[in-house]
């Protein structure tokens, strides 16, 4: 009885632990090809305001804790929506959906999100509730 109880508790703890670990690892939200193309989109349309290394200039930093930390409680949806609605500042919606997908894939990659096999999709990403917390300092 005693040992069974212990084992059940231990099992529950293990399950809870692995669930937490799964949550903590950032999910794959884009493909490596998208991020690669996104580096160019970023360099040509965003870097002049957000810095070649994303660390900010006339526009805010797009990398690290200054961009997205746990306290901000950002999710991917509103930030992606901000990009497609307003960016590049002064010339909103001037890029193609694909360019926005790629640029955002690049920003996710720079913030420590891994590439995967499913493409980042414009419409779906606008309402994404995945937490946006940078893995970078």
């Amino acid at each position: 009885m005693n040992s069974l109880k212990t084992r059940v508790l231990l099992g529950a703890a293990l399950v809870a632990g692995s669930a937490a670990a799964a949550l903590a690892a950032p999910p794959a939200l884009y493909t490596a090809d998208q991020a690669k193309a996104g580096a160019d989109v970023y360099a040509q349309n965003c870097a002049m305001c957000h810095g070649a290394d994303l660390s900010g200039a006339a526009g805010p930093a797009l990398v690290g804790q200054a961009f997205a930390n746990a306290a901000n409680k950002f999710t991917v949806g509103p930030v992606f929506t901000e990009v497609v609605q307003q960016m590049p500042a002064g010339q909103p919606a001037s890029l193609t959906h694909e360019q926005y997908e790629d640029a955002f894939a690049y920003i996710l990659q720079q913030n420590g999100y891994p590439a995967g096999t499913t493409k980042l999709d414009y419409t779906a990403t606008m309402s994404s509730k995945v937490p946006l917390v940078s893995e970078k300092p």
Binding site: M48, C49, G51, A52, S55, G56, A57, A58, A61
Partner: peptide
Amino acid sequence: MPKISLQHRLK
């Protein structure tokens, strides 16, 4: 392009 990378915001 404006030359704004020299001393960007974070630095």
